[in-house]
Design a protein around this nucleic acid. Sequence first.
DNA 1: CCGCTGCATGAGATA
DNA 2: ATCTCATGCAGCGGG
Length: 789
Amino acid sequence: MEGDKVCKNVVCSSSNSIEWKKGWPLRSGGFATLCDNCGTAYKELVFCEMFHSEETGWRECTSCGKRVHCGCIASSSLLELLDTGGVNCIGCTKNSNLPPVKPIYASSEIPKSKSGDDAEKDCHKIDTIPTKLEDNFEIGYKLLSSFNQPSTEPSKNYDTLQESTSAKCLVQTKLSIGLPASSNLSPLSRVVTEERESSIAISSFQQGCRPHHILPRLPISPLRVARPPVEGRVKNQLLPRYWPRITDQELQQISGDSNSTIVPLFEKVLSASDAGRIGRLVLPKACAEAYFPPISQPEGLPLRIQDVKGKEWTFQFRFWPNNNSRMYVLEGVTPCIQSMQLQAGDTVTFSRMDPEGKLLMGFRKAIQQDSHTSMNIGAFQSEPILATAENVHLMNGYSGLLQSLKGSRSCAMTEKNQVAQQLLLPERKRSRNIGPKSKRLLMDSHDVLELKLSWDEVQDMLRPPPNVKPSTISIEDHEFEEFEEPPVFGKRSIFIVRLSGEHEQWAQCDSCFKWRKLPVDFLLPPKWTCKDNGNYQTRTSCSAPDELCSQELENLLRMNKEFKKRRVATNFKSTNEIESHDPETKAIGGEINGASGSSTATTTKHPRHRPGCSCIVCIQPPSGKGKHKPTCMCNVCMTVKRRFKTLMMRKKKRQSEREAEIAQRNYQLPSKEEAEVDSVPGQLDNVRRPESGEKGETFKGNLDLNSCPGKEEQHTMMSRVSMTSLVQEASMCLDTYLRQNGLTSLVLEQREASPDAAGESVAQTLDCQDQEHEGSGDSEKDEGENDPS
DNA sequence: CCGCTGCATGAGATA
DNA sequence: ATCTCATGCAGCGGG
């Protein structure tokens, strides 16, 4: 394939108004460019035929004679297509006075405001494009550099180029030539993907969407995160997760003054099984087929790979047939893994030293946070991870090769970006290694519980943003506060309940650091000082003596700590049981309330609500583990059941309303039911026009969930004959259920007494049953029955 | 019994 | 719908 032919195909020479449509990348390979004006569609192949397929030879740099592997050439052949006359290796490209490689733009970034004349004129400038070849890594480097030096090299400045139609055409052409077919990303986007810290472009690209802002001001870093060389056997481009990440500095130093060229091939994050004792490292298929010798037998062949210390290892490179495919593994890696002290989550890198062709194995340690890998909790606790990433001392495999790059800024950037990138990845992708499939990376139950509690703490600490008055809306009888701005974190406080039953809240002044007693229901702002303690006149000054001696404080904190420990140690179910019951229960326990001593006078379910709040949210029994048994008759469960019944009534009524409406519309004849309903003054009004009629108010979305269904039934029976069946039907669920469980007497007892009293007495009576919460109750049936809403 | 081997499985990713 | 690959596990052989 000759370059000029490509150019002629891409450039429309007859148009006044060129609007390019991009269909890239094509699933069938390559990508398409369509000229709106002349209608010429051009499909570019993945690779330049010249280097495609079985070509495995070498080319010499036209400047220094250094040999460059064709894989590098093929993968970076965007300029090669225009002028195949020369090849420049990495080194001499840098040292020569070659024209800079111009950035490649995503199609969505191409401005469309220019006139067709200009466009056409500029399109022909393609012929004057500098035609030096650089390998793909160099391109990546150049791209980064060009954005990093906008002032000194205006020709590389995005803004400049963006305003230039020549850039438009140039970009178009380059795109059409340089893009690998099966990739979703342009070469630039790859670099950008790795470099920038915003997820916008990343996600949009990964989703195959057109990014809106794909050309950020990139951080100055010579990081080479580039598509690895495309070997002949590669049918599919490597997934980004396997792209090698290496800094330009590293690469340069690795290659050094020697004639050898280090070609980063791919890298892989070690899975649990990779790092396990089996000693099998699963190789990405594409990588194995691309960079390792072809094997036809499952037994494979021994492969010698040199590690960062220069030690040579021999692994068995083989495959298993798997679903009409192959699964490639390196066997016998355990000694090497152990030698490098790698574990799951760490990354192994594979490079090739050319022209010798020797395989190199490096590594990059995962960021450690306590005893967990970053991946372990990175998805949940991004901030600590990021903070750690900046300070972590990196043990980098390439650095191992270099023995001189530890802690370099580039590495830090790399690591940080990796972490950031990981955090920015869609949840699904990130979760791959922390999902249930990966036992090692699973948080154990204690961790989960800690995390849960921490999350609860966070919820409890959420406060309305300062100076912003929340608007409260009511949805389905739930009150929601809405803020124009994100909520802020309130100050932590310690909430305790004395043995006497007295509730107390304590907080530390941000000014004098003295501990002050606060009203129990006081929500602390992010910053709180003594003078804010208006309710306690004697404590509004920082000059007032500390109310808490060190021993008392210690005691408080100890109680807090013990409580946390106990919660962690205790089955989560029982913990939930305690919390989900009447807050009074907690008071009896004399514990620090809520989630480990934060400002937890609120409930854990509804940050703005307090213990004792009986709103539907706060009283809901916990879901998942620890939920109550269907037979539970505790106050909470009874209330929930009562409300469920009310909800069922309403649901049935609505259904009836709809049916009545439909019947009326369809038949225009008063049905028997309608007649019956009509006989009850006001009722049909409620049914048909719930917004009108005084009596309709009861069912107009303001249903009192706290009302006693028994009383409601009485009212209903008296005034709404047609609703009787509905009420009975709605009640039947619970009644039948209770009867089946031999609880009829309890139901009667509850109905006779006040709901709360009934609930409490029942709760006391069935205390033993309540204890079952701790032992079981994690079945789906339980959940469905106990949390019917 | 234990560890290794080869394959199966299925969740998740990709086309 | 198909592919990839992390992991489980049955079967086998050796100690």
